[in-house]
């Protein structure tokens, strides 16, 4: 469990962070949320698709790391098996949260239950004078970056919906061992509709900077085969 508290120099001055391997968060997750810009790196290794959040119905941009619900083909106790570790799967005790009353201001929080925290080992969050350490500043910058990148997903998704470019699909493949692997409730770019898009709309996509991500998502579909290969290798 986690317990995020607003980061407070007077309470948290002595905290240190122990580096432990960075993918503890993603053990039984078959999909991992990513931000929009992250698509560009992620598409080389994972299928990038949209799924709906069960409790809000809102779309989330995710990478598929398995071919069945809750299956991860990348998690191992020795570390992540892929080159690109999805950023939201890298654990950090530092996160940003919105203040309920004002959606534009964010506060820096620390997960006081995180196993990475210590008062003895690791790198300090605050220096001896009580100022934020460079290390903490780096963590905050990462958290801000992650947050900002995730904020870009909704406008991108709304644009795709408005242009009718998303289509639902199910992934259904047969593995070497004869098992039928199925994932439902996925949404991706509809290539046929993209090709029929009229010029003005295409220009709108380009001007809004959406096109690279649209193509990244399309290309990433070829990674389904890589997942299957990985599945076959792991189950041999």
């Amino acid at each position: 469990m986690s317990n995020y508290q607003p980061l407070d120099k007077s309470k948290h001055q002595e905290l240190k962070i122990k580096p432990i391997h960075p993918c503890v968060l993603a053990k039984e997750k078959g999909v991992i949320p990513i931000g929009l810009r992250e698509t560009v790196t992620a598409c080389a290794e994972y299928p990038v698709v949209f799924v709906k959040d069960d409790s809000t119905g809102q779309f989330r941009l995710v990478v598929l790391v398995g071919l069945r619900p809750n299956q991860s083909l990348f998690y191992s106790s020795d570390g992540w098996l892929g080159k690109h570790i999805p950023k939201s799967a890298r654990s950090s005790p530092i996160a940003l949260t919105q203040i309920a009353s004002d959606e534009h201001s964010l506060i820096v929080c620390v997960d006081t239950d995180s196993k990475m925290l210590s008062k003895v080992d690791g790198r300090s969050l605050f220096d001896d004078n009580g100022a934020q350490s460079d290390f903490l500043n780096e963590l905050i910058a990462d958290a801000e970056d992650l947050y900002a990148d995730h904020q870009l997903v909704k406008p991108f998704c709304d644009l795709l919906l408005e242009q009718n470019l998303l289509s639902p699909f199910s992934l259904n493949v047969e593995a070497e061992d004869g098992s039928n692997l199925e994932l439902k409730g996925l949404y991706s770019i509809d290539e046929a509709k993209l090709n029929q898009l009229d010029k003005d709309m295409l220009i709108k996509l380009r001007d809004q900077g959406a096109l690279p991500f649209v193509y990244a998502m399309l290309f990433s579909m070829a990674r389904i085969d890589s997942l299957l290969k990985r599945y076959n290798e792991q189950s041999r």
Binding site: G57, Q58, L161
Partner: peptide, 11 residues
């Protein structure tokens, strides 16, 4: 309540 807060998607 979910419809009020989030709404349905078209697809």
């Amino acid at each position: 309540n979910q419809v009020k807060e989030y709404g349905f998607s078209t697809i």
